[in-house]
Amino acid sequence: MSSQPSASTSRQIVWPSVITVISAAILIGAEVFGAAFAGGWALAILFGLSETEAHILQAVLFVIGVFVMVNFIRAAQRIEPFVRRG
C-alpha cells in the first residue's frame, strides 16, 4: 500500500485550533525570548562578562528558546490538531 493519501481523502484545516496554538505561541514566545535576552544581560553583569561575551550568552539562550518553542508547537499540535481528515 502506498503511504500517499488517496484522492478521495480530504483534509480540512481546523482554524480555531490553528489560531489558538499561534496565539499561545506568540504569548509564550514573547516570554521565552524576553527572558533569554534579559537573562543573558543579567548573567553577563553578574559574572562580569564583556559586551561580546554577553551577546554570545544571549544568543545561546535564544537558541534554547527556539528549541523550547519548537517543542511547544509540536506538543500543542498533538493536542489541538491542525487538520481534520475525513
Score class of each variant (00 low, 15 high):
residue 24 A to T: 05
residue 55 H to S: 12
residue 4 Q to I: 15
residue 10 S to M: 12
residue 77 Q to P: 02
residue 3 S to N: 07
residue 69 M to P: 07
residue 4 Q to F: 08
residue 53 E to V: 02
residue 56 I to M: 14
residue 26 I to N: 05
residue 35 A to N: 14
residue 58 Q to E: 15
residue 20 T to G: 07
residue 32 V to Q: 01
residue 20 T to E: 08
residue 18 V to E: 03
residue 70 V to D: 12
residue 56 I to P: 04
residue 20 T to C: 06
residue 42 A to C: 03
residue 16 P to Y: 06
residue 75 A to G: 01
residue 2 S to I: 02
residue 58 Q to A: 14
residue 78 R to V: 02
residue 9 T to Y: 08
residue 51 E to T: 09
residue 25 A to Q: 03
residue 32 V to D: 00
residue 8 S to L: 11
residue 84 R to V: 07
residue 84 R to I: 09
residue 32 V to P: 00
residue 77 Q to T: 13
residue 9 T to I: 12
residue 29 G to D: 01
residue 76 A to D: 09
residue 52 T to F: 08
residue 46 L to A: 11
residue 1 M to S: 10
residue 29 G to V: 00
residue 44 A to P: 08
residue 22 I to P: 02
residue 16 P to K: 07
residue 9 T to W: 07
residue 52 T to A: 07
residue 41 W to S: 10
residue 27 L to A: 09
residue 86 G to V: 03
residue 69 M to A: 08
residue 27 L to W: 07
residue 36 A to V: 06
residue 58 Q to M: 15
residue 86 G to I: 03
residue 82 F to Q: 11
residue 80 E to K: 14
residue 50 S to L: 06
residue 80 E to T: 09
residue 62 F to C: 00
residue 82 F to Y: 11
residue 63 V to F: 10
residue 18 V to N: 01
residue 62 F to G: 02
residue 23 S to D: 12
residue 80 E to R: 12
residue 36 A to T: 05
residue 49 L to V: 01
residue 83 V to Y: 14
residue 83 V to M: 15
residue 46 L to M: 10
residue 1 M to T: 09
residue 56 I to L: 14
residue 6 S to H: 15
residue 36 A to N: 09
residue 40 G to S: 01
residue 51 E to N: 14
residue 27 L to N: 03
residue 36 A to I: 05
residue 33 F to L: 13
residue 76 A to V: 08
residue 81 P to D: 07
residue 13 I to D: 13
residue 67 F to M: 13
